[in-house]
């Protein structure tokens, strides 16, 4: 088959895919909404136990990584390959930092006996069990998406270094960038729902 160089079409396909990702997460947001409605006070208590510092730092660095991905595409279009590669590497690194933060955050919670099906949760207020259940499921799935995004950006990075992606052919980078922005924007919704609800 002849190969298509229809970047507009490829982008359309990517947007459709991102749409399915939004629907995937929205299923969990529906659960969140239903249980928030059922246990408003327990959710507020649960929110107080999450560390605002961890959450804020992760939000800020994720926003920075989104900027650096966007800047990397612009840099590539202006033919500065080194800068583009550097910015992309920075985004991947920030993804890693995000996950490390998450690791410590989860670790702390688990250390305090807050994890799915933990005795403290099961015997405590039912609403808090829902809150932390959703917390682990949603941030866990989001973490998986961060990992997928890091893999995609790393592939782009290698392709830039091998000159397979260049200013005339940046469709793949743009689509992977879109994916990264999606992962970022989902976090923007997760952050207030869990950390700022007090």
């Amino acid at each position: 088959m002849e190969t298509h160089s229809d970047t507009k079409g490829a982008r359309l396909g990517m947007w459709l895919f991102l749409y399915t990702e939004i629907m995937l997460f929205s299923g969990m947001f529906i659960l969140y909404a239903a249980y928030l409605h059922k246990f408003p006070t327990d959710f507020i208590e649960g929110g107080k136990e999450l560390s605002l510092v961890f959450g804020s730092v992760n939000t800020i660095i994720l926003l920075i990584s989104s900027f650096s991905v966007a800047a990397s595409i612009t840099a590539l279009r202006k033919n500065s390959r080194g800068l583009a590669a550097g910015l992309l590497a920075a985004a991947v690194a920030i993804g890693g930092i995000f996950l490390i933060n998450k690791y410590f955050e989860w670790g702390q919670k688990i250390h305090h006996g807050i994890y799915p099906n933990a005795p403290a949760l099961v015997n405590g207020p039912t609403g808090e069990n829902m809150f932390f259940g959703l917390y682990y499921v949603i941030t866990g799935l989001h973490g998986i998406h961060i990992i997928i995004g890091m893999v995609l950006l790393s592939v782009c990075l290698v392709m830039i270094l091998k000159n397979r992606i260049h200013s005339g052919n940046d469709g793949i980078l743009e689509n992977c960038g879109l994916y990264w922005h999606l992962v970022d924007i989902i976090w923007i919704f997760i952050f207030p729902l869990f950390y700022l609800i007090i």
Binding site: T20, L24, A34, Y35, F39, V137
Partner: peptide
Amino acid sequence: TPILSITLLLVLFERIFAIGLFDASKGGD
């Protein structure tokens, strides 16, 4: 389809981690 995907995934999580998202005795519905 994504809604089904997440729903089935949640049942799978329930089977593995017993979170209780759909378990009335743990606050789920």
